[in-house]
Design a protein around this nucleic acid. Structure first.
Lengths: 341, 341
DNA sequence: ACTGAGAATGTTAGCGATAACACTACCGAA
DNA sequence: TTCGGTAGTGTTATCGCTAACATTCTCAGT
């Protein structure tokens, strides 16, 4: 590749010299300016190819004040939900011609989120998506230095930034109503961890559906999203097998734990107890029995968050603080059936 | 925040004026140069705080020629393996004071990988980690424009770049030997997709262990990592329940599918057939029965890849092209037992 | 008091690109 | 012929920072 540039990678001036034009003309070719003669353009392109020239985006970003890079702040991208969301965001960003820089927090707290955001701003990102599924993370969005567009995914309606999220309460309503419609007297619930907004939303939808239907509202069991915590909840539910006929579990991983506990305790699903999960991870279809669950469209969440972000970027700060809600779907499989079936 | 900078974000010169020093002194404070009087330093820091100044890393990168950003090229970061690897890389990079820019490919082919790498180089990353678990991706590393350190994770020994990976063959040996030791005559295998190096490595270790032990080598079944493909393989294996007593499945998701198929066909695990998986995803412990599997330490892979990359960065190109292998572990659970137990 | 070595600070010159403006052709209309 | 408009190109300034060198200050040793 690079010849006659003395070892160092070629810069625009080298291309200009090789093509016999000014560096500005090279810049025009690179940026598709209309006022360049076709012959000149091809001569420049030839020189670029010959020298193996690559534009220095850092220098470009310095003068244009745009890096065409977006920042993403997330939490534990090993979990299916966050991983899928981040993937969706990355794909949507790239389709829009943007790069993605990721900061994956180990623990989420106000300071961590704020630091991550500052870190990204220093790096010169044009906008930031914060995947903030926890109350404490959402809170961190309250005290923000303005000046850069931010979108929260799965965050609360903090009022400070636009939010894109799946309608958790609606998903819980679908799940609970499905079980009631099958004929169950009431529905038990294994909720997610306290600090998570998604867990709250699911409790809310479940609670609302039961009370609207005038049903008894059982004590809520708690988990931390992990299969193990579901297993523990399942052990407790198994001891109450007489009074429990249907359980709405706040995610699929915990559902797996509940199923395992039931299997160990000889509780048959769905004959004795029906189970509905949440997320529709790829494994759910192959649980024993296959899990009825609520599917979230993470790809849509990613795309919308990028849409909103780029909207802010292009239309300036005057943009309305929207709240974009993606509807979930119920996927019915073998883990739910009429009581005593 | 920012006052007296006329609306625009403050720059170093603004801080300098506010502190009554030159911008160079501000730079020195920011870069922890020794030759700054303590009193001056604190005056500068005060001004920084007062103005809400944030250093422009883009300008800094332009002059230092280092962005302190690393690029990661990956494939389908929704899968547990890649997601965990990327997470490990990101954490290790941040601990080392580096940012991470991610390009997540939808499909992996030579052109895609090369474009992604060029894309990242243009962006000014200091080095690149390519998570290239497929043969075609590894091939893309052959024809590389040099000039920037690259490390392959899970890639083949292409000879062009250093590689960090888990010893797949060793994991397969552990799994197969475990089943033989339990007393099984031979071990069947459900392999991963053709193009994947990990799938090849696992086949290799399995095959080698069987032939070393002088056992018959059964026909290999194929899957694509998905639970569904495991399910289909499981259906076939169930029809041969008489002659099959042990199966080594190339990942945990497929193992789940196999388990599901066996459950449907009334094949009991581990009484009739033992199963060993690979990966140790968080769900495996709660399968029915809990899955014996091979654990990969993705965190270690991430850390080592960053180590190698930074090593290249700091010690120049003279670095040896190493191959760093992380050993896997066997995790014994309920899905494996002596034959006919 | 004088000197010289270092510490502490300031000044100038880029990094590699784009923006803004200046300039040269060339065209058709007056 | 003269003029104005526009397509095509070049020149200069600038983005915000650090490197390199220049300068001033401080203080011990004579």
């Amino acid at each position: 590749m690079g010849s006659s540039t003395g070892g160092r990678p070629p810069v625009m001036a080298d291309v200009a010299k090789a093509a016999g034009v000014s560096h500005q003309t090279v810049s025009r070719v690179l940026n598709d300016h209309p006022n360049v003669r076709a012959e000149t353009r091809s001569r420049v392109l030839e020189a670029i190819d010959l020298l193996g020239y690559r534009r220095n985006m850092v220098a470009r970003a310095l003068v244009t004040r745009h890096s065409r890079t977006l920042g993403v702040v997330s939490f534990d991208t090993t979990l299916y939900g966050p991983a899928s969301t981040v993937y969706g965001i990355e794909q949507a960003a790239r389709d829009a011609g943007y790069f993605v820089s990721i900061v994956s927090l180990r623990t989420i707290d106000r300071a961590g989120v704020r630091d991550a955001i500052n870190y990204l701003i220093e790096q010169g990102v044009d906008g930031i998506v914060v995947v903030a599924p926890q109350r404490s993370a959402a809170a961190a969005l309250e005290d923000l230095s303005p000046g850069i567009p931010i979108v929260a995914v799965e965050g609360g309606h903090s009022g400070q930034v636009p939010v894109v999220c799946v309608d958790q309460a609606e998903g819980a309503r679908l799940a609970t109503a499905h079980l009631l419609k099958l004929g169950h007297e009431t529905v038990w619930h294994v909720r997610g961890p306290q600090d998570w907004l998604e867990a709250e939303g699911r409790v809310e939808g479940w609670h609302e559906t039961l009370s609207t239907a005038g049903r008894e509202i059982p004590e809520v069991l708690s988990g931390d999203w992990s299969p193990r915590s579901g297993y523990e909840a399942g052990k407790r539910l198994a001891t109450m097998a007489g009074e429990v006929s249907a359980v709405f579990v706040a995610n699929d991983q915990m559902s797996l734990g509940v199923l395992r506990a039931f299997t160990e305790e000889g509780v048959r699903v769905p004959e004795q107890i029906s189970i509905v999960g949440f997320d529709d991870i790829p494994e759910s279809e192959f649980f024993s029995p296959p899990l009825t669950t609520v599917r979230q469209d993470f790809g849509a969440v990613g795309r919308h968050s990028i849409d909103v972000l780029l909207g802010q970027l292009e239309e300036g700060a005057a943009k309305v603080l929207e709240r974009f809600v993606v509807p979930p779907d119920l996927v019915v499989r073998g883990s739910s059936a009429p009581p005593g079936a």
